[in-house]
Design a protein around this nucleic acid. Structure first.
Length: 568
RNA sequence: GCCCUGGUAGUUCAGUGGAUAGAACGCUUCCCUGCGGAGGAAGAGGUCAGAGGUUCAAAUCCUCUCCAGGGUACCA
């Protein structure tokens, strides 16, 4: 459940009742917001509703010739109309007009049991109502291994997918494979020449080809499988053959590398297929019939300006050389996503250097007769790699790159995902390998996982001693650190809803650290397994609390795509 | 030029209209004869880049300026 929403509804009902009973004048209430104050002495939750409505209240009172009310008086009036409920333990009106709420400690304590009983379901809100959503991410050009920049895309995209599938959406993860066009041809050409070189043929790789050493590895892999049987192919056969062989090698490698960071795609979508199954023709016909296409300078243009404010420019649809431009592929691709496959919502995760392209997408949606709001482009800023405070270039002049695989092998998937996720999408990231790899208290990743391992250890010990939490009297959980721990867990649904609303996964790692911290404080203050028989009841209650903590920590780690270790 | 995004503690970063701006790391002091010390408690540390404005209330919204990065292709 969303506690803030539940309490907002209670307050809203009280305000309405006050209006109905004539305590307050009638006017449309604003949305009631309940938030969490920073200071403990302001309560667990708080609403500023009285402050928000002073003006309409007093305007109405003035019209009626009555005396004006202060925000504090308004808050008191609302307070008196609050219905009985299990959540609120105490509600105080505080200057200048806040309503501060302390949760009922009994209700809070009971939630430890509810969390254990319901498991992760306790934290889930059905926002999606079964809507079909596609998250398309990574989608790096299939011309070599993923460089480290792609890891951020993978972390964001996959975590968004996890957030959505745990919020009532039906989610598909898709990788868009740009397997046609000049760059793939150049890639095939380079691979062919490298293959020839391996067999002693004196050829150079293309000037604008792919000089990286990994291309030689691909060529070797082809040599290993096909020997010299491809040497005699004429160019017009060699290029498509090497394109096909090379793509397979690259995609296999991408799949393996992404699996290293717990990322698995449901679908790898071929750009080329859009031109083979008639989608491109269909889309061209639609746009032509609508009069959205025109010829200029030998190229066919899409009149994006027809659908967007006049400061936007048109896009090349088919280039003068007869090749479709990338925008043409994008239109066909999104036609396929929405019209053919019927996704209710599509999220594309792009690096910020595609910002201009992102701005043009609404025109495309409108031209296809689709609601632009059904497509969301999540832009994220780039990653710079550092080692000991000094920048390391992700791609080098030689064509060699710092691959995602190398970094993952060094720092591990959990630390990489945690760090990449902990920054807001719009913020640039300085990824310091040395910091991420440090397995010390300065690395929050291990602090969080350590909390989970410690929780697991306590439960193992309890089990070994024949203790369990059955029939625990949870009302014994009154210690401030016990209450604080449960209250922290109660915030998780709000964190997830916020992350989904704003497509901002960076709230998760911050919450996880908070939760681990709160647990460790409880652990430091309260002994769970007591040797004193007189404490048997308290031990049972605390074991329940520890079980709830394990559920919560494991779930948040799962949402981030991180492991929840039983031992470390 | 125009457009987009950042600028918050020594450092790395949270905080998209609420009260005394938070966390981690680092620093200072204290606590280890107990379930895992990869700890716990207390503290120092801020011109929220700057200047105006809107509001009962601004790090948050608006305008301008400064700094950093990105975009502005018949590349993707």
């Amino acid at each position: 459940m969303l506690l803030t929403k539940t309490l907002a509804e209670i307050i809203e009902r009280a305000a309405r009742k006050a209006q109905k009973k004539g305590d307050l004048p009638k006017f449309p209430l604003p949305e009631v917001v309940v938030s969490r104050p920073r200071q403990a002495d302001k309560g667990d939750l708080s609403s500023a509703l009285a402050l928000q409505i002073v003006r309409p209240v007093n305007n109405a009172l003035k019209e009626q010739g009555k005396e004006r009310l202060s925000p504090i008086q308004i808050a008191e009036i609302i307070k008196r109309r609050i219905a009985d409920n299990p959540y609120i333990g105490r509600l105080e009106v505080a200057p200048p007009g806040f309503m501060n709420i302390w949760l009922s400690p009994e209700w809070v304590a009971e939630q430890a049991g509810a969390i254990v009983e319901q498991g992760p379901a306790y934290f889930k809100e059905n926002i999606g109502q079964g809507k079909k959503v596609q998250v398309e991410f990574v989608s790096a050009n299939p011309t070599g291994p993923l460089h480290f920049g792609g890891a951020r895309n993978a972390a964001i995209g996959d975590t968004l997918a996890r957030l959505l599938e745990n919020s009532g959406y039906e989610v598909q993860r898709e990788y868009y494979v740009n397997d046609r066009g000049a760059q793939v041809d150049t890639f095939a050409e380079t691979l062919w020449r490298r293959y020839q070189q391996l067999h002693g043929v004196e050829v150079d790789i293309p000037e604008k080809g792919y000089p990286g050493a990994y291309m030689i590895d691909y060529a070797r892999a082809i040599q290993a499988e096909h020997g010299d049987s491809l040497l005699d192919l004429p160019r017009e056969e060699a290029i498509p053959r090497f394109r096909e062989l090379g793509l397979k090698l690259v995609l296999d490698e991408l799949d393996r590398d992404l699996a290293m960071m717990q990322v698995h795609f449901d679908n790898w979508f071929s750009e080329q297929s859009l031109y083979e199954d008639g989608t491109f023709e269909r889309v061209s016909a639609i746009l032509r019939e609508q009069g959205d296409l025109y010829v200029k300078d030998g190229a066919v243009w899409f009149a994006a300006s027809k659908y967007l404010p006049k400061d936007d420019r048109d896009e090349v649809f088919i280039r003068a050389n007869g090749e479709p431009g990338y925008y043409a592929s994008d239109i066909a691709y999104h036609y396929n996503k929405f019209v053919v496959r019927g996704f209710d919502w599509v999220i594309d995760v792009w690096a910020v250097d595609h910002q201009n392209q992102a701005r043009r997408m609404p025109a495309m949606m409108k031209a296809l007769g689709l609601d632009p709001d059904r497509l969301t482009i999540v832009l994220y800023d780039l990653v710079t790699l550092k080692r000991g405070g000094k920048e390391v270039k992700i791609s080098k002049r030689s064509g060699d790159i710092i691959t995602m695989r190398e970094v993952l092998e060094e720092v591990g998937s959990d630390a990489a995902r945690y760090f990449l996720l902990s920054h807001s999408n719009e913020a640039r990231i300085d990824f310091d390998i040395d910091l991420a790899v440090a397995q010390s208290s300065e690395n929050p990743v291990y602090y969080i996982q350590y909390a989970h391992a410690r929780v697991s250890s306590i439960l193992r010990k309890a089990a070994a001693e024949g203790l369990d939490a059955a029939d625990a009297d949870l009302h014994l959980l009154t210690h401030p650190t016990e209450q604080a721990l449960i209250q922290k867990m109660l915030q998780l649904p709000e964190v997830v809803v916020e992350a989904v609303d704003r497509l901002a996964p960076h709230h998760l790692p911050h919450f996880a650290l908070d939760l681990a911290k709160t647990f460790t404080q409880f652990y430091g203050a309260c002994r769970v397994i007591s040797t004193d028989p007189a404490d048997a009841d308290l031990t049972r209650a605390r074991l329940k609390l520890v079980e709830a903590t394990k559920t919560t920590l494991a779930y948040i780690l799962h949402l981030m795509g991180m492991t929840a270790p039983e031992v470390m």
